[in-house]
């Protein structure tokens, strides 16, 4: 094992599972039961028949803990494949957010200006509010929300990270 065995790292792990009842509870229960962190978790069916779902989980821990997490996930009966995207090379991570900003006058103008700079789209507008849609890395959404807070940030809904490896190689 490495010398710095106690160093923490983040890991983005993709898990392909049978899309059956209780499978998400198994994954979440594994994390809570064994005391692992979940920084974010997303899930949706990804194949044409809807039988396979992809879970993207962002977690952190020492190298030994992350290896454990992967091994524990892999031995769940409905799990097809576990892939540590962080370890396996370059990958893309994106998150989608819907952000509601409430305000009048100059604040509305400022909100639109910032949205433009962040490439957030207006998906709903009233005379007193906007809903922005944006995708990007979690840090970008954090930064946008932080700027909107003094202007009138009212509500945020985020998906959590989805991720995929760069290049031609597929996971299935």
């Amino acid at each position: 094992m490495s010398e710095n065995g106690n160093a923490q790292r983040a890991a983005t792990i993709a898990v392909l599972v049978e899309n059956e009842a209780g499978v998400l509870a198994r994954v979440i229960g594994l994390f809570s039961g064994r005391g692992y962190n979940i920084d974010s978790l997303t899930v949706a069916p990804v194949d044409e028949t809807g039988r396979i779902s992809r879970i993207t989980v962002v977690t952190s821990g020492t190298e030994m803990v992350i290896e454990q997490i992967k091994a524990q996930l892999d031995r769940l009966v409905p799990v097809h494949k576990v892939s540590d995207l962080t370890l396996e090379g370059p990958h893309l991570t994106r998150e989608l957010a819907l952000i509601k900003v409430v305000g009048k006058g100059e604040n509305r103008v400022e909100a639109l200006r910032l949205a433009d700079a962040f490439r957030a789209r207006v998906v709903d507008a009233t005379t007193g509010s906007f809903v922005f849609e944006m995708t990007g890395a979690a840090e970008k959404i954090d930064a946008f929300c932080a700027l909107m807070r003094p202007i009138g940030l009212a509500e945020v809904s985020r998906t959590g990270a989805v991720a995929i490896a760069r290049g031609p190689r597929g996971l299935i």
């Binding site: 094992m1 454990q68 892999d74």
Partner: peptide
Amino acid sequence: IDPSSINKNVP
């Protein structure tokens, strides 16, 4: 036979 038993407590 269980990969999760390996490197769990003892490297």
